[in-house]
Design a protein around this nucleic acid. Sequence first.
DNA 1: AAATTCTCCAAATGATCGTTTGGAAATGAG
DNA 2: CTCATTTCCAAACGATCATTTGGAGAATTT
Lengths: 209, 209
Amino acid sequence: MVSCPRNANDRLELSYDASMAWDTEQTQRQLLDAGAVLFARHGFAGTTMDAVGRESGVNKERVYSYFGSKSGFFTAVLDDQLANLLEDLPIEGVGAAAVGTYALALFDRLQSQPGLARLLAWESLELTEPVAVDCRSLSCANLAAGLTVALPGVTQDAAEQLLLSVVTLVVGWWTLSRVADTILTVDTTPAARRAALRADAEALATARS
Amino acid sequence: MVSCPRNANDRLELSYDASMAWDTEQTQRQLLDAGAVLFARHGFAGTTMDAVGRESGVNKERVYSYFGSKSGFFTAVLDDQLANLLEDLPIEGVGAAAVGTYALALFDRLQSQPGLARLLAWESLELTEPVAVDCRSLSCANLAAGLTVALPGVTQDAAEQLLLSVVTLVVGWWTLSRVADTILTVDTTPAARRAALRADAEALATARS
DNA sequence: AAATTCTCCAAATGATCGTTTGGAAATGAG
DNA sequence: CTCATTTCCAAACGATCATTTGGAGAATTT
């Protein structure tokens, strides 16, 4: 598994002292974290710079000196949150059951950070090309390769389509929630959906192997 | 198949004459169509009332007399576009192949009107409850019932989860397009995805029946 | 045909938008 | 220390936002 290096300014220095009155890295971190919350909740167009200043506890003017513009800030937040989204989630084991297990792991990661799935949706709806495309493509290629290992006889194309289907199914729980509201009546709990997604991922893998 | 009645003001009268200088129904139709285009493209927060006036060819003030507010206009557009989205798309035939055929039909409907899938996504992201919930719930209940007929032995709960998975997979092609951009490398064409979705829907149905 | 109601638009409203400015406080160099 | 530089904030900037106003013209009523 090849890990993806972060931006140069992501972890610039460790030489800052907590007693310093100014900590530019922490200022940027506060802004990025506030942006992650606000952009996940309201998207790019729905987030105001006033809200960024309020949520971060930092003056909104700092955004422009560090990220240039609201657009630059948006992509910086997406990059910060999404670049390593699929990292450290390898396909473990072999056979279709491994794919079901992977779906569960992805579901749990998104459930522990509910903003991530929504950020993926905003990115798709409001941008014309993905952020951190090199880094994420590498992660995805590794995952697809892992699928061809776990499922002997599956071509690379089939592995990519399978991975896309599994990710779409899992992410869709948080990004198409009104659709779920209109369809589900018997058991609307996340636990029920989680179990169904594991079975679905396993079924998709079984059919392709 | 029970069809869902539209709003009272959707087709008020047929007594209007084309030679009349004023045609309030057509004015509302122009606004709703313009709203469908703009909201699908930019969402609620990203659409301005100036753009509505420009796109519709009608003064933006008309929105407020007919729909009350921008929010009311948004829900009216969503209702107009989504209420009968799943109508006239019955589950035909029996067995898992029928589910694959249904996925294809849904894919083709969304492909012929690409804004619909995006409107579903904006609705999920920007609203806390679905529009036209009664009407759409009825459509979905009919579809789920159709699934229990096509797939004997499938419980209602399983049918609902299956329907949600199929709809999520198909809609996701247009609403998580940046995710597809990062995953697919071998064949990124819609035709390839369409074929994969049919196979996926069939596999999900097979596993549950 | 006069009076009234309804439909529509142009223009203006106050509020809020993204962005910039000017300067205060803290830092590092000499 | 002094002085230039950097970090940060309060306030202001023009532009644009959603919404309203005032009135002109078409339809309906009497």
